[in-house]
């Protein structure tokens, strides 16, 4: 056998083995979601069984699951929209009309992301309690908007900088007002960038579990909080928990796979290119 081919075969085996081991817990969870509750806790564990959709039906029929899923959708989409709306003007100004302080401002914004949430848990909790924002969707939307704003500003800034200035100049020469310039030229030109920024923001909101666990209980609780409520009963609902978890992670897994590249850019603030 040619040494190049053998090398490739070895890499294939080792690569798939590593990927398999890392992915195994997720695979096992998905597998368990198609078992009955008895099969789920059977010893020895069952690898081959007659798959059932019973758990998914049960989960879907429980009205509260839909309620929590809806909260997750509304909160992550709401916070993402709000953050993008606040960030677009700022990123536009910083990308196209940079001043002496632009870089410092950008760095300051990123540095706010580095403050640990526990450091401000108590004041936020008390402010939320006293203003009635606890366990409300808008309360969590507000927190997530602020949490992701620096990343959204930063990512939009880097995408806007890639838009050729000449096109915007030409538009301006033809008499486009700043508003038209942003809406009719910049937005369509950087749509892929805006989309991947929004995607990352949705992923981060969807999986956030510090604020959701501390600021919501039932009314506004997203899926992270709902799943956490399964930690109490000992091993009785594994199959249902697996089904609920599988639905909870499926959309985000797909989003995440779609946006791998931008993810690196967004999460490292451009420190790794």
């Amino acid at each position: 056998m040619h040494p190049k081919t053998r090398e490739k075969l070895i890499a294939t085996v080792v690569g798939w083995l590593a990927a398999g081991v890392i992915f195994f817990p997720i695979f096992w969870m998905i597998l368990t979601s198609f078992k009955t509750e008895v099969e789920a806790i059977a010893t020895p564990p069952k690898l081959f069984f007659t798959p059932t959709l019973e758990n998914y039906v049960t989960v879907r029929e429980r009205a509260d699951y839909v309620h929590f899923a809806l909260n997750s959708v509304l909160i992550s989409v709401g916070a993402t929209l709000l953050a993008t709306l606040i960030a677009i003007p700022a990123s536009y100004a910083m990308a196209f009309f940079p001043g002496k302080r632009t870089k410092d401002l950008l760095l300051w914004m990123l540095s706010t992301k580095m403050m640990p949430a526990v450091g401000v848990l108590i004041p936020i909790y008390l402010l939320f309690r006293d203003s009635g924002a606890i366990d409300t969707r808008w309360g969590l939307i507000l927190v997530y908007t602020l949490m992701n704003l620096p990343i959204v500003v930063w990512m939009l800034y880097t995408f806007f900088k890639e838009v050729p200035k000449d096109i915007l100049e030409a538009g301006r020469m033809d008499g486009a007002k700043p508003k038209q310039e942003v809406w009719m030229l910049l937005m369509p030109l950087s749509l892929p960038g805006i989309a991947s920024t929004a995607l990352l923001s949705i992923i981060l909101c969807w999986n956030e579990a510090f604020w959701s666990l501390n600021l919501t209980t039932s009314q506004a609780a997203p899926l992270t909080t709902f799943i956490a409520s399964f930690s109490a009963p000992e091993g009785l609902f594994w199959a249902k928990l697996s089904a609920a978890s599988t639905i909870a992670i499926a959309p985000i897994l797909v989003f995440g796979w779609m946006s791998q590249r931008q993810l690196v850019r967004g999460l490292t603030f451009g420190a790794v290119k």
Binding site: I22, T224, S245
Partner: peptide, 15 residues
């Protein structure tokens, strides 16, 4: 291999 990063922390901890 990159999938675990997109699983919400409460799900991965319970699994």
């Amino acid at each position: 291999a990159i999938a675990p990063f997109f699983v919400m922390p409460t799900v991965s901890a319970l699994v």
